[in-house]
Computed example of a mutant assay.
Amino acid sequence: MSRKKQMAAADPNRPRLTTSAMIASLAGEDQRTSPAPFGRALVELGRTRPEILGLTADLAKYTDLHIFAQAYPDRFYQMGMAEQLLMLAAAGLAHEGFVPFVTTYAAFASRRTFDFISQGIAEEGLPVKICCALPGLTTGYGPSHQATEDLAIFRGMPDLVIVDPCDALDIEQAVPQIAAHDGPVYMRLLRGNVPMVLDEYDYRFELGRAKLLRDGADVLLISSGFMTMRALETAKLLAADQVDVAVLHCPTIKPLDTATLLHEVGRKPRLTVVAENHSVIGGLGEAVAALLLNEGTIPPRFRQIALPDAFLDAGALPTLHERYGISAEAMAGRIKGWLG
């Protein structure tokens, strides 16, 4: 019997959660959103930076690069379904003084073009900005499109900066800063109607910096990407049970903001939890754990909330997020269990 049939048999009255499997919104029903923040930020940047180019592998519409293409058609290149060619074409243009922004899906960039990025872009120190949609579990299309290991793959590449923004504000502010960085960048990308969260916390993106969004005495939640949105939701849920949760947003995965991380973990004894939209192997959690161990800043208890080391199911995102423990409700339940 299939898993879907097993679930129906177990609870015939269970509501069916349906969303588009490929491009599903992460926003709640009443949550504020901003349309295409990446595309709009790149258009704005292009007004004063004629060297900014846009390249994609047949995915302009699904990475919001089509907005840049409409604004600057002479600075846009559609490379077709040829991701290796895409990366080397961007490298060639960077050698000529341009700053290419390259878009595709995170699974294709990390798995299919790794060697081309390593040898053609990173080793040369070229200012190519690789901005990729569908990171982690942001699509229900299954393992072929779920880039649950992209951070693990790219963290090992020398001189590559890695950014994992939380929301529309993070993306809008990150675009000009990664463009100004003199070297290659890999940025995970949320597209379409992207939630607006961080504007409520007097937040500004700074490349290489982590930001404490709220303080708390019982738990320190360190997070990146949309899991910072989940962390803030989790903190509100746990507040109802008198559990005080701090949230530290870490949008730059590499290089880590070691000073802020060590300060926040070390300044008071509390449960430290790293939450990420990535495999439990090789992502932010392991990076933070290694930092703390190497520096001798050991919290009383350390836990990870992440995706399992497995090929994940296909389906509706709300169902998958609950199944794999990255919904706010699932996170709150696990943290209460760890606090005992």
Rank of each mutant, 00 (worst) to 15 (best):
Asp74Gly: 03
Gly92Ala: 13
Asp167Phe: 08
Ala168Ile: 09
Ala57Gly: 10
Phe101Ala: 04
His66Glu: 08
Ala69Ile: 04
Asp58Ile: 08
Gly142Cys: 15
Phe101His: 07
Pro165Glu: 05
Thr113Tyr: 01
Ala122Cys: 15
Leu134Glu: 06
Gly183Gln: 03
Glu83Leu: 09
Arg155Asp: 09
Leu151Thr: 05
Ile171His: 02
Thr113Phe: 00
Phe76Asp: 00
Ala82Pro: 10
Thr138Glu: 10
Phe68His: 01
Arg155Gln: 14
His145Cys: 14
Arg111Pro: 05
Glu123Arg: 13
Phe154Asn: 07
Ala109Cys: 10
Tyr105Pro: 02
Ala174Leu: 07
His181Leu: 07
Gln119Thr: 14
Asp159Pro: 02
Glu123Val: 11
Tyr141Phe: 15
Phe108Met: 10
Ala91Asn: 10
Cys166Ala: 15
Leu55Ile: 13
Asp64Cys: 06
Pro135Glu: 05
Glu123Ser: 14
Leu55Arg: 07
Val128His: 01
Gly80Trp: 08
Cys131His: 01
Leu59Thr: 05
Ala71His: 02
Ala147Trp: 03
Cys131Phe: 03
Ala106Ile: 06
Thr138Met: 12
Thr148Phe: 07
Leu160Asn: 04
Asp64Arg: 01
Pro143Gly: 13
Ala89Met: 15
Gly156Asp: 12
Leu169Val: 15
Gly183Tyr: 02
Leu134Thr: 10
Gly80Ile: 11
Ile121Cys: 07
Thr138Pro: 12
Ala82Gln: 13
Phe114Trp: 11
Thr148Pro: 06
Thr56Lys: 00
Ala107Ser: 14
Ala152Trp: 13
Arg112Asn: 07
Leu86Ile: 13
Asp167Leu: 09
Tyr105Leu: 13
Val163Leu: 08
Tyr72Asn: 05
Ile171Glu: 00
Pro184Trp: 02
Pro135Asn: 09
Asp64Thr: 04
Ala152Asp: 13
Ser110Cys: 14
Ala107Glu: 04
Pro158Met: 11
Thr138His: 12
Asp74Leu: 05
Ala57Trp: 02
Thr56Ala: 09
Asp170Cys: 12
Phe114Glu: 07
Ala94Phe: 07
His181Arg: 06
Phe76Thr: 08
Gly136Phe: 11
Tyr186Cys: 00
Gln70Pro: 00
Leu160Asp: 02
Ile117Trp: 04
Gln119Leu: 15
Thr103Leu: 08
Pro127Ala: 06
Arg75Thr: 01
Gly140Asp: 09
Asp58Gly: 08
Ala91Met: 11
Ser144Leu: 14
Gly125Asn: 04
Val128Asn: 00
Ile153Phe: 12
Gln146Gly: 11
Ala82Ile: 14
